[in-house]
Write a protein that binds this DNA or RNA. Structure first.
Lengths: 116, 116
DNA sequence: CTAACGTACAACCAATTGGTTGTACGTGTC
DNA sequence: GACACGTACAACCAATTGGTTGTACGTTAG
C-alpha cells in the first residue's frame, strides 16, 4: 500500500524532474498532440521524445489514444493534482510543527533561554 | 531567468524523486534534526544520508544551522510551496484548455462531425 | 501493391545516481 | 592534550538516465 504509493511518488517526481518532460506536460495539458507533433518541437531525435512521452505515460501523467496512425497524447490533470496533494501532506506536517510551537509558547511564555 | 527557474525546478523535483529524501523532508519539516540523528533512522551508511541531505540542501528544500558540533537541518516550507505553485501553473494550463472547449461549445454547438 | 508516415523498441554510449569505504577536520569532553 | 563525536568529502562501483542510431511493424495515401 504505502510501498505502492511511494513507488508512484518516485515515478511522478522523477517524470517531472526533466525540463523537456515538463514542457511536454504543458503542451499535452493544453490539448492533444501526436508523438511526432511533440517530437518536432524539440532539438532531439524522435526516439528521445518518444521515450520522454513513455516516461510520462508510465507515471500516469498522460494518456495516449490511437487516432488512425497517430498516437494522441493528453495530459492527465488528476495525476498533477495527486502530486500537489503529496506536497500538501508535507505542508501539513510543517503546520503541525508550528502549531506545537505555538501551543508551547502559549502555555509557557519562556521555557528556556529564548528572549525573542 | 526562465533558464534559472527550470534549473531550480529540475533540482526540486529531482530532490523529491527519492523516497528516502521525501522521508527526510517529513522529519525536518516536523522539526530540527541533526544529520547523524537522521542517519540513525535509515538502514544505510552515514555518508549516504549526508549526501541525501546535501541534495535537499542544494535544492533549497532544507537549511542547516550549526549548533555546537552538530548541524541541525530544518525543512523550508516555502520551497515546498514553490513546487506546489509549479503544479498550479500546469493546472492553469489545463483549465485554459477546458475553458476553450467550453467557449467553443457555447458559441457553436456542433462545429464539425461530433455528435456526442 | 507499394511507398511514406507514425510509432515502438532494441542496442549502444557517456554521464549521473545512489550506494559504499576511507580519510580529514572541527568541536566538545575528560 | 588526547579522544570520541559529528560532519564533509574524495574515490570507487553498479545501476540508471538521457541521448543516439537502426530496425520492425501497423496504417494511410497513391
Amino acid at each position: 500500500m504505502t510501498e505502492i504509493d511511494e513507488e508512484r511518488a518516485d515515478a511522478l517526481f522523477h517524470a517531472l524532474s526533466d525540463r523537456t518532460r515538463r514542457d511536454i506536460m504543458r503542451r499535452v495539458l493544453a490539448g492533444e498532440h501526436s508523438v511526432s507533433a511533440l517530437a518536432a518541437k524539440y532539438d532531439m531525435s524522435f526516439a528521445a521524445v518518444q521515450k520522454h512521452v513513455a516516461v510520462l505515460e508510465r507515471a500516469g501523467l498522460l494518456v495516449k489514444r490511437r487516432s488512425g496512425r497517430e498516437q494522441l497524447a493528453s495530459g492527465d490533470v488528476t495525476a498533477v493534482r495527486s502530486v500537489a496533494s503529496m506536497l500538501t501532506e508535507l505542508e501539513q506536517i510543517w503546520r503541525g510543527r508550528i502549531a506545537r510551537i505555538d501551543e508551547l509558547l502559549a502555555s509557557d511564555p519562556a521555557p528556556h533561554h529564548q528572549e525573542d
